[in-house]
């Protein structure tokens, strides 16, 4: 397995505050890896270390097989980085900015002439390329920030909250771009506090809180490791012992309990078994008026992990 980012015992302190605390991080090549955590979890600090903007107080980092020293331009030459709410020099026009950044990457004139219009088109700024970035809206700056991160056709793209400040259409477009570049073999490392975003685009995820990695792996691995039982919550008219008995007979059911008209069915499988539970209820003479699946989303996992982490902190 090839890793494009490997960080071991990564530590960063701001005075007495430990922003990143002995973080171990591995990002597999060719994946879209989400870096998930609440505000202030240490996501941006970690990303800034990865691109050489901050110096770690401890630990080691290698990017694309190269040790990340301080001020090492070579390590950055194969990376694209989009900061959180990118602040771009407002005295430059969008096209000029990409051209100048392209020169900084050492791109040839031909490569810049090909890549700059293509990227402006991709992020929907084709018509505004000759305007000063100071005249751009926040969303447009975000789009240009995405374009400059892809300028050098990087092997690894690091995106810090790429959807922040975008309207719903923009969010969808940015996610589509992420999926597109991943298809071309580019590894995307994406920090976000938007659970549904990570769930929609990421194949792998690392969950971080207070600078500590709480879990890491593919979405399925994390689910299997952390997720609590899946519970089907059904509201049933004519809820009787017969209904409960019928549901208990189902092979994937671990436990059944009731509270008034509500029936709680704990299931052992990740498959969608709602229709089979519904059929069992009907067979027992009950009428299903509503049914919800709880404990299955990344949000549930995330919240569960945070709650567990907080309990452990409190116990200390």
């Amino acid at each position: 397995m090839e890793f494009v980012i490997e960080a071991t015992d990564l530590t960063k302190k701001y005075g007495s505050l430990v922003a990143v605390d002995k973080l171990d991080l591995k990002v597999e090549a060719g994946t879209i890896h989400g870096f998930l955590g609440p505000n202030g979890a240490g996501k941006t600090t970690t990303l800034k270390i990865l691109v050489g903007l901050l110096k770690p107080d401890g630990g080691s980092v290698s990017i694309l097989g190269q040790e990340l020293g301080w001020d090492n331009p070579d390590a950055r030459s194969r990376i694209g980085y989009m900061p959180e709410l990118p602040k771009l020099p407002k005295h430059l026009k969008g096209r000029e900015l990409l051209d100048i950044y392209g020169r900084m990457y050492g791109m040839s004139k031909e490569a810049r002439e090909k890549q700059v219009p293509k990227l402006l088109d991709m992020v929907g700024l084709k018509e505004r390329g000759n305007d000063l970035t100071g005249e751009y809206s926040k969303g447009m700056q975000q789009r240009l920030g995405m374009a400059q991160a892809l300028l050098n056709e990087p092997e690894l793209v690091i995106l810090d909250e790429p959807s922040l400040g975008l309207d719903p259409v923009g969010m969808v477009e940015i996610r589509e771009i992420m999926k597109e570049i991943a298809k071309e073999g580019v590894t995307v490392f994406l920090s976000s506090h938007l659970l549904h975003e990570v769930e929609q685009v990421c194949t792998n995820v690392t969950i971080i809180n207070k600078g500590v990695a709480l879990a890491s792996g593919t979405l399925e691995q994390i689910s299997a490791k952390i997720r609590g039982p899946l519970i089907l919550e059904a509201e049933v008219d004519k809820l009787s012992k017969t209904v409960i008995g019928k549901v208990k007979e189902l092979p994937f059911v671990a436990n059944v309990s009731k509270d008034g008209k509500k029936l709680f069915v704990e299931v052992k499988t990740r498959d969608d078994v709602r229709s089979r539970v519904s059929q069992a209820i009907t067979a027992g003479g009950g009428i299903v008026t509503s049914m919800n699946l709880k404990g299955g989303s990344l949000e549930d996992v995330f919240m569960g992990l945070l709650a567990k982490n907080q309990k452990e902190e409190a116990a200390k």
């Binding site: 050489g52 950055r76 980085y81 950044y101």
Partner: peptide, 16 residues
């Protein structure tokens, strides 16, 4: 002050 240093220093150009 403006934050433009972030994308600039993330480019493969040494600080010197």
């Amino acid at each position: 002050e403006s934050g433009t240093i972030v994308p600039l220093l993330a480019k493969p150009v040494s600080r010197t």
